[in-house]
Amino acid sequence: MGLLSKKDAALIKDPLFDNNPITIQVLGICSALAITAELKASIVMSISVMFVLGLGNVVISLMRNIIPSKIRIIVQLIVVATLVIIVDLVLKAFAYELSKTLSVFVGLIITNCIIMGRFEAFALGNGPWRSFLDGIGNAVGYGLILIAVGFFRELLGSGTLLGIKVLGDPIEKTGLYAFGYENNGFMLLSPMALIVVGIIIWVQRTKNKALIEEN
């Protein structure tokens, strides 16, 4: 970590686990769940969010002294919307099939609470470099959960990873299927995303007792 001071490194490291945007801050769940039936879609979604959040944080942080606080939400929305349009057009141009799978959820990055949350909580009060690091850190934390959920849902649901049949062929009964293993098609349905995230939260809080909520 020669490039980053200790404080800056914490900006990237904290959101990965102990202050994860999804499991601890409860932000950005909307888009996280609907598109995680495939690992590929989750990876693309995380990269898109990283681009929007990293760049958006820098832009907002550069403008933080000239935005009147009354209309700041609209200004923030416009900045995010512009970045999201770029992402959407790039996806449509280079990965058309994937952009069909993601459908409206690319557009919904605009209202992804992580982005507004980080703008409000961090970029409005910090310089561009630190805001950039904060944005990247949070996006990676978000991506980690997305990829974990996508990994389990695709592996258990259709027996593939990124479209590659890792568990053997279910029709020709090779690999695991030779022993009578069956895909759990239920994992592909949307409710299972919620339950998988619930289980991730459970595991995380069992490991780190400090995070347990009182209720």
Partner: peptide, 10 residues
Amino acid sequence: ALRGLGITFI
């Protein structure tokens, strides 16, 4: 460990 957020998800 499941209190609050976790159980709500499930």
